[in-house]
Amino acid sequence: MEESTMKRSATVSNPFTTSVAGGSDFCDRRQELAELERLVQDGQSIVLSSPRRYGKTSLALHLQARLREQGFLTVYVDFFSVLSEQDFVTKLAKAVVAGIGRGASPGNFRSRLANLFRSFTVTFEARPEGIVVSTALAPGTSPATGLDDVMEDLFSYVEKNHRKACCVFDEFQEIATLPESKRIEGTLRSHVQMHKSISFVYVGSRRQLLMDMFGKNRPFYGSSGFMTLNSISSDDFVPYIVQKFSESGKTCSPDIASLIYDHVAGYPSYVRRLAAFAWGMTETLCTKDIVEASWNALLDDTTALFEATWTGLSPIERRALTSIAVEPTSQPSAYEYLQRYHVPASSMQKAIEALKMLDLVEYDKEWHLVDPVMTAWIKDTRSNTI
């Protein structure tokens, strides 16, 4: 390799982000973004669902960035790690404070929060990277009262300042795992239905759990529209891969980019990760052999996660998952299928329902695994356990 190429490879960073994609890293989703923007501008709320790592968070944050340009107040909170009702309320309050204070100087930040948040103690510290906020329920305040107050205070701030707002509740379905979930849902809905100045985008990747929250006999029933993210088409992703290689001084032909896309069945985050491995292994020209080596690296990289998921399943659930990975089927309870994979008839349907709730399997003409890389991992490492 020539010295100039070595210097360029050492200084150019990998152009394929494997985290939240923003700016030029954001690929396509033009139609979904425009539709979400239109719905929020009309004051509607939306349930945004898809499998894990499909780009929901990137899309939601991209939406909020565009809305801020139009004067919207935006609030983003991730409930993935929520542990309790108090944790939920504290996370929400912190996100509301951060949204209201976005872009403010320390002095202006304090004035924006004046006479707000009766149930919370808010502290903040000015750091070079920005203002760091902490919130805590005031002594003697119950989480239920705190949730009522933070929602009321948020709506009061928006109306007082004559603004529209958009709140993104990421991994919203996780509150359904809390003992107080019905109370939380009821309190949130009571505020949402009384105030129309704020749109909510409820984002989730455990799709069955999320859909159940908006089903009949639940507080949120009928409160929101629904949008499902599909995979990004190869017509959009392949040119994106080619361009990213080119911009960083390397070459990936459309045929090789298509191979990257097809290897992971167009699954958005895996397309980026496989492309990132391939880019890292490429000196000047990406080849089929490099893609194959990158695929093996991706399998190695995901093994720990898949093993953790596998360990959390019951023996029957593992057998059901393995059978569907090896042989997708529209009739998992058929006698020959059950005999072939040694799953009792009485257990298969229950196992599939559990796997569906975990978003590991889905039905589209036939039952198959949601994750194409997990499918390959099971075939390579677990199919001999049947």
Rank of each mutant, 00 (worst) to 15 (best):
Q31H: 12
G22A: 09
C27Q: 03
S49E: 14
R38F: 15
Q41G: 15
V47Q: 06
T17G: 14
Q31R: 10
G43L: 02
S24H: 12
V20P: 05
V47N: 01
G22L: 11
Q31K: 10
S50D: 10
G43P: 10
A34E: 13
F26K: 00
I46H: 00
G23H: 05
V40D: 04
V40Y: 07
Q31W: 12
D28S: 07
L36T: 00
R29W: 07
S45P: 10
S49G: 12
D25Q: 09
V47D: 00
S50M: 08
S45I: 04
F16G: 05
Q41V: 06
G22D: 11
V20M: 09
T18H: 00
S19I: 08
Q41H: 14
E37M: 07
S45F: 09
R38V: 06
S24G: 08
L36I: 00
P51C: 01
D42E: 15
A34H: 09
Q31V: 12
E32H: 07
T18V: 15
F16H: 07
T17S: 14
L33N: 05
D42F: 15
D25Y: 13
C27R: 04
G22Q: 10
P15V: 03
S49W: 13
G43K: 07
E35L: 09
R30K: 06
V47S: 05
R29H: 11
D28I: 00
L48N: 04
F26S: 00
Q44S: 12
L33Y: 07
L39A: 13
T18I: 15
R29C: 03
P51D: 06
F16M: 05
E32R: 02
P15C: 03
L39K: 11
V47F: 00
D42Q: 15
R38E: 15
A34Y: 04
P51A: 10
D42L: 15
S50F: 12
P15A: 02
Q41A: 11
S19A: 13
C27I: 11
E37F: 04
L48K: 02
C27M: 06
F16D: 03
E32W: 02
G43T: 06
V40M: 05
D28C: 03
P51Q: 02
L36E: 02
F26Y: 11
A21R: 13
A34T: 10
T17N: 12
V40G: 05
L33E: 05
E32Y: 04
V47M: 06
T18A: 02
P15R: 01
S45H: 07
Q41F: 07
D42G: 13
R38K: 14
T18L: 09
R29V: 03
T17K: 10
V20S: 10
G22C: 04
R38Y: 15
D25M: 06
E32M: 01
